[in-house]
Every structure is written in C-alpha cells, then in structure tokens.
Design a protein around this nucleic acid. Structure first.
Lengths: 332, 332
DNA sequence: CTGAAAGCGCTTACAG
DNA sequence: CTGAAAGCGCTTACAG
C-alpha cells in the first residue's frame, strides 16, 4: 500500500502542496475556511501521517531528544527515563534511549547515532569520562544537559543534580542521633563524581562527631553484586559495627541479603541505610531507610531545562540542585 | 558550527557527491583506491556524520525499529526491552521505546509517531485491544511482531510467546508433589490473553488432582498493588490455604509482603509461587520460587524475527513458543 | 487567498 | 572509473 503524502491530498483538494502544508501546520491564518476544511477532511479520510524525516530534513528540527544512560534495567535509571519521557511527550517531544553499560565505545556510537538523527538535544545520565561524547555534541552544536552525575571538567555545563554530600550528612546525623557510632560506609564507583561527593559527606559528618575511622570505608560499585561483596568483607573483617551506610539502594539491598543470610537482625543487630529511594525500597522486607533523591522531579527538570535551551529561552540557572530528604523506614 | 555534509567532502576531494556516497557506503568496487582513500581520510578529518534523515528519506529504510510496551519501569518489560535493544544493535538497528501505560490513546499516538518516523518495523509487548494500532501498521505496511502477549483476533500474526498454560501446570504439579492441596490462584488483568492462559493452566492442573475449587481464585492485575490487595482478601476470607500461585512475580512480591507482615512464615505456613522470573526474585528474602520465562531469549527472538521479516527472509514459523521452566527457590 | 520554486542532504539508476 | 540529474516528502520565503 503506498503511503499517502501531501501531494495526494493536494491533488484531490485541487490545491498545491504548499497550501496543504500550511493548513496541516496551523499556519492557516490566510487560508479560506473552505479549502481549510477540505484539506483537513481529506487528511483524516486518507489517514494521512506526515513524513517526519522529510519534515526534519527541511526544518532541521526533529522534536526528539536523546537520553544516554548506563542501563535501563536499573530501577534508578528507568525511573529517570520515565520522568524524562513523560515531560518530553507533554511538550510534544519524543525520546530515544541509549544504554551504554558504562562503555565509552557504546556511548560514542550512540552519540553519533543521535547526531545523525538530528536530535534537538540530549540528556546525559552517565558521568565518568564522557568528554569526547560531550565534545562531539558541542562540535555539532547540539545542546545537552547532565543529570544526576557530574562530568569532570564540565561543571559549567547545564546540569540537574542533587546535593549528595548534604544528603549523606543528613543520614549520618540521623544514625548518630539514634545511637550508632560505628558506622561503615560502602562507596560507589571510584570514577564517578557522585561517589566522591557521597564519601565526602560521610567523612565530614563522621569527623564532626569525632567517630571517623577510615577502616570503616569499603569499596563498592553501585550494583547489587557490589553490595554483596562489600558486605561479605565487612562481616569478615569487623565484628562490632552498628550501622552500614550504602552509597546507593541497590548495594544496600544486596548487602541486606548477606546480613540476613548470616543470621543478623535488621535493625536490631545492624542498622542499614541506602541512598536514592528507588521504588523497591518499599517492597523489601524490612523496608529500607534511605536518603531520597527526587528522582522523578530531577528527570522532569532536566527535560524541561533542555527544552528551554532548545527553544532559546533565557535560562536563569545553568545548574539546578535538588535537596535530598531522609526517609525513615524499618531498617534503622 | 555548520554541519559537514557529503558536498563538503566532495568539494575538498574534487569529486562529486555521488562518488562520496558510494565510497562511504562501501559500494566502492569501481572506485580507484586513490579517490577512495582521499574521501575516507577527509571524512575522518572533518568528523563527518551522515545525516540519516536524508538517507532515510531517499532509501525508505531507517534501520530503526519501534517497541511498544506498557511501562519501562516494570522489570519484566525493561528486561525485554534491553534484550531487544541488544540484538537490534548487534544487527545495526536502533530502537525507539514507547510507554503506553496500557492506554489506547497513548498507544495510537506512538504508532503514528513510529510510522511518521518511518521505522522499519515494530515490536508489540502490549496486548489487550490493540487492533486499531495493528491496523494502522498494516495500512502503512510496516511489519510487526507480538511478544509475550497475544492480541485477540491476531493469532495469525508474527509472534513470540511462552507456553503459559503448560508453565502454570508445571508449577501446580510441583506444589502438589510437595504436599500442597489448597492452592489459591491470583489472576492477572482480565483483558489480557495471557491471564486467561495462566488461569486455564491452573484449572486444568487442579482438576487433574481433583482439588479444583473456584473459591480459591482471586482477582489481580499484575501489579504489586494488585498482589497486595488480592492477598489481603485471601487472608480475610480463608484460613486454611497451603499455597498461593500468583500469575506473575510482581504480585507475588506484593503478596509476600502482606503475608510476612501478618506474621505468616514462608514457606512453612504458606508456600508461594510466581511467574516470570524477573531479576529481583533472587534478591528478595526469601527468594521466590517461580515459573521462569526466558525473557531475554524471547526479546532476542522477537527482534531477530522482525529483522528477518524486514529483510524479506523466508520465515519458517510465524509463531514461536518458548518453554517455561520451574525455578525452585526458598518460598516453597 | 494561493501557487511555483528552491532547498534540506542523501541515493540511485544511467550515461559516458 | 566518475559525474549529472532526478527524486525522496516536506517547508518556506516570495510573488501575485
């Protein structure tokens, strides 16, 4: 079945395709009601669907944005992605997702793809050493905003973040207030800025109470596996720990599994705290106490910011920071 | 910064853009090595990125496929999506995701979008009454394959499914074999064919053992909330139940929460069984026994099938069915 | 109030 | 071995 084009409508309506284009795009102030209706009706009747490649080629706008993230399968990123998609589509934009698995090669392939598809902008939820991707975008003058993760050396770019340091400090304050003193900390991937920020928050807060001990810091990588491994180490090396602060919820969930398996009671024997407040925190038993990032709002803000940039609006703040909040549940 | 085009390369190389096109697309049997290299080098030097809108407009191929699903935030669908993306990209295709939230309006908007973007094909992971979407695709002759969920009246279309009835029967057999007799069943959304299939499997198996009792069937909707609500009802109405078979894992997880909260021990007091085998089954404590669908393989197969159709390959089977398998963990 | 024409950046027969 | 030309389906000044 041949696709119906503007020319088909034009012919049947006895007008030129320029006219059809105008009315279909609502630039129809100067078109008579008669032809307007004729065209509109024909378009409906023939089930006309515009060819957005052709449109994009001539306007240089595609009304689509790209979003680059490590893995859509990770609940944190699927939430962010969902938020972005929702607000994009309410502004008439649609979204292309790109899973990089934190591999630079994949990331760059995707950036090329996005550029070749003439996306109007891109949102980065990766972090790490994305410099060359970022440069490629700049080189092709496609605007971008970073979300959740700083990229080293690109602090001046548009970005939406949460206050990681402050968040962790809030958590430690709370743990301290309920009597914990020996608080272990499980770090995230070393090459991500947010990991450092969270670690800094831990150090500051622990210092404040004069209970800092660098032996209480363990390596992790933001995955469940990472949480499991770190927790095994914690069990091996140290007996008397009050509480464990995991740099994100996924690691906390993995960690809790190990602790429960080893017969420890949460929160009686160890208190547990995560970071992010992904949805499953509430489903787990016991429910996870955590530092909540406003994930949905951050995604939404990132998308709106990007669209404002695309529309050449004046941006008052190039970086926006969201406050975190302490969500007390059953693990503390 | 102006984007570099084939014309730029052509000029600098002193050839026509036709020639540039040929070598960049590897249709270069008849091009001299000299000009070939000149062009290749210039392309690299100038960071040339082809404009895929222009390409798509002239070839009518975009090497992108659409995938329509209810919600990427749901672990089952994010896994399928991931599988599809992986195999798509290894065949040089990329993917546009569309979250419908099971709303027909959204679904149709997205289908229009996909058509307007000239996708080469689409994969449907929705189900329910998608007839009009499917018709729109047919009307525009874009091929599609259904995955995981039948669409009523479209059993003859390309599709990748798992054997739902058989799967549930396997589960009941197992529960029976370990001594359960009073086995409750929580259904999925009534308007999905897979719900019926799973229910049928339950009935058949229970009948076989002469332990079928329709009062043991409860309504659900495949969400965590649904599992919670159904389970509250189960607690209210009946005391002596051995086991609960939830039509999917999400409901089982919600249900377990309610049971644990009410002081029941799993599996000592009630045995629990899910369906799907999503990743978090293994993280939960106790780990969920379930009927596994080969989620990743199904996504992969759906994608490969679609690509074969796009490439006009001969397809031996229009429908492919995957076997499920019983995964015994700690809830039974 | 509407149309003719050029252009967006590619590809693809066809000609030489 | 390579180029000229037409075409993909739109949009957008410009002219009348």
């Amino acid at each position: 079945m041949k696709k119906v084009t503007m020319l088909d409508i034009a012919k049947q309506a006895g007008v030129s395709k320029a006219t059809v284009s105008m009315v279909l795009n609502k630039r129809d102030e100067s078109i008579s009601d008669e032809t307007k209706n004729k065209i509109l009706n024909l378009a409906k009747e023939l089930n006309y669907i515009p060819n957005s490649l052709a449109r994009g080629l001539s306007t240089k706008k595609t009304r689509t944005i790209g979003i680059v993230l490590p893995d859509i399968t990770n609940p944190f990123f699927s939430s962010i992605a969902r938020a972005i998609e929702d607000s994009a589509s309410s502004s008439g934009y649609n979204v292309i997702f790109c899973n990089t698995d934190n591999e630079m090669g994949k990331e760059q392939e995707y950036i090329k793809l996005l550029i070749s598809k003439l996306v109007d902008g891109v949102i980065f939820a990766t972090g790490g050493e994305s410099c060359s991707s970022v440069n490629m975008l700049k080189h092709n003058s496609v605007p971008f905003v970073l979300v959740d993760r700083y990229i080293d050396g690109y602090e001046k770019e548009y970005g939406v973040y949460s206050l990681n340091q402050e968040g962790v400090m809030k958590g430690i304050d709370y743990l301290h207030s309920i009597g914990s003193r020996k608080i272990a900390f499980v770090k995230g991937n070393e090459n991500l800025q947010i990991s450092n920020e969270r670690l800094k928050g831990y150090k500051k807060a622990m210092d404040k109470y004069c209970i800092y001990d660098k032996n209480l810091i363990f390596s992790g990588d933001f995955t469940i596996e990472g949480g499991i491994n770190a927790t095994k180490q914690i069990l091996d090396h140290i007996g008397n720990i009050d509480a464990i602060f995991y740099s994100n919820d996924m690691m906390a969930l993995g960690g809790m599994k190990v602790l429960l398996r080893n017969g420890l009671k949460i929160p009686e024997d160890v208190k547990i705290m995560g970071f992010d407040n992904i949805d499953i925190c509430e489903i787990f038993e016991p429910e996870l106490t955590t530092i909540a990032q406003p994930i949905y709002d951050m995604g939404k803000e990132a998308c709106n910011l990007l669209i404002d940039i695309i529309d050449n609006k004046d941006i008052e703040k190039k970086q926006v920071y969201f406050k975190t909040s302490l969500v007390i549940r059953k693990t503390t």
